[in-house]
């Protein structure tokens, strides 16, 4: 063969053009966008810790912080920073909220995922989404001006801003996220499971109870955890509806004060850099760490499902 090879001038074709450089640039830009989420979460922890570190290093003791119910940062003679009552306040309100929200959310999720069909299902889902859309300050306002007189009338108590009031409200606020995630978990159970069980003559409820719920167990647990996290971190509604009294609650009609509400109520009146200011940031660190652990656990549980 003497004919020259029919190959093109590939070296001339192989030039990096504008599109190539634009592509590389965009790859870097979107990478920065992706990493920004990590930067922000680390930044939040860093800044809150930075502002609160003075308190943690100088005034913090496990006993004084977790063991004392006296939160009196403005006392001139003996300022103390015991967070126990605040933690108890948050815990009691969140606890009551979960008591209400867990059964109702799971019930609603089961109904929407397993029983409801067509239009009913769409309408219910939209209502649940609307519930999630109501701003927390509106919830707080409802607690303050609707629930408060209602509780006073019905239970014949002197004040209606209490664990019951804020717990109910918080329950309604946490319910949509729990319902949505629980519904997703139920829907993730393959239809073949249901069909197999129904072919054996089981009713819908038997299928749900024996097959679907056990299969979706971890997803449901994650839903509950995320609901707890939501309730734990809620601020405005708890601030407005819980009575804001430092108190170890003994009944649902006691007023309490939550961690989040304490920060919201007091931060405006502190001088930047004062011990009180730092103490409020220390509460923030505590809130951050607890919600982080809750979210991490929920994520690990969900990841566990994907693996199996």
């Amino acid at each position: 063969m003497s004919a020259p090879p029919p190959h093109p001038d590939t070296a001339a074709l192989d030039r990096r053009d504008l599109a190539w450089y634009v592509d590389k640039l965009v790859a870097v830009l979107v990478f920065v966008g992706g990493v920004s989420a990590v930067v922000f979460i680390v930044g939040i922890f860093a800044f809150v810790t930075h502002e609160g570190w003075g308190f943690v290093s100088e005034h913090f003791s496990l006993r004084g912080f977790f063991g004392s119910i006296r939160w009196a940062p403005t006392s001139t003679s003996n300022p103390t920073y015991g967070a126990l009552a605040l933690i108890a306040g948050t815990a009691s309100v969140t606890g009551l909220a979960m008591l209400v929200a867990v059964p109702f959310s799971l019930g609603a999720a089961i109904y929407i995922a397993e029983f409801a069909t067509g239009r009913t299902r769409e309408v219910l889902k939209v209502l649940v989404e609307m519930l999630a859309a109501i701003p927390s300050v509106v919830w707080g306002f409802i607690g303050l001006s609707v629930m408060n007189p209602l509780i006073i009338d019905v239970f014949n108590v002197p004040i209606g801003l209490c664990v019951l009031n804020s717990g109910l409200i918080l329950g309604l606020m946490a319910a949509p996220i729990m319902t949505t995630i629980a519904e997703d978990a139920l829907k993730a159970v393959p239809d073949t499971y249901r069909e197999a069980a129904e072919a054996l003559g089981a009713t819908r409820w038997q299928v749900t109870r024996r097959v679907v719920l056990p299969a979706a167990r971890q997803g449901l647990l994650a839903a509950v955890l995320l609901g707890v996290g939501r309730g734990f971190g809620e601020t405005m509604a708890v601030l407005m509806a819980s009575g804001h009294a430092i108190n170890l609650p003994t009944s649902p009609f006691d007023s309490v004060r939550a961690l989040t509400a304490t920060i919201a109520a007091e931060l405006g009146e502190t001088a930047v850099g004062s011990t009180h200011y730092q103490a409020l940031f220390a509460l923030g660190i505590f809130l951050f760490v607890v919600t982080f652990v809750i979210n991490l656990s929920a994520d690990l549980i969900v990841r566990g499902i994907r693996k199996t």
């Binding site: 090879p5 190959h7 590939t10 192989d14």
Partner: peptide, 18 residues
């Protein structure tokens, strides 16, 4: 491809256009 190693391309989009 066309006498050039496919790994040698600096702009592989140009290769794909062929």
């Amino acid at each position: 491809v066309g006498g050039r190693d496919v790994r040698a391309w600096r702009n592989l989009y140009a290769l794909r256009r062929q």
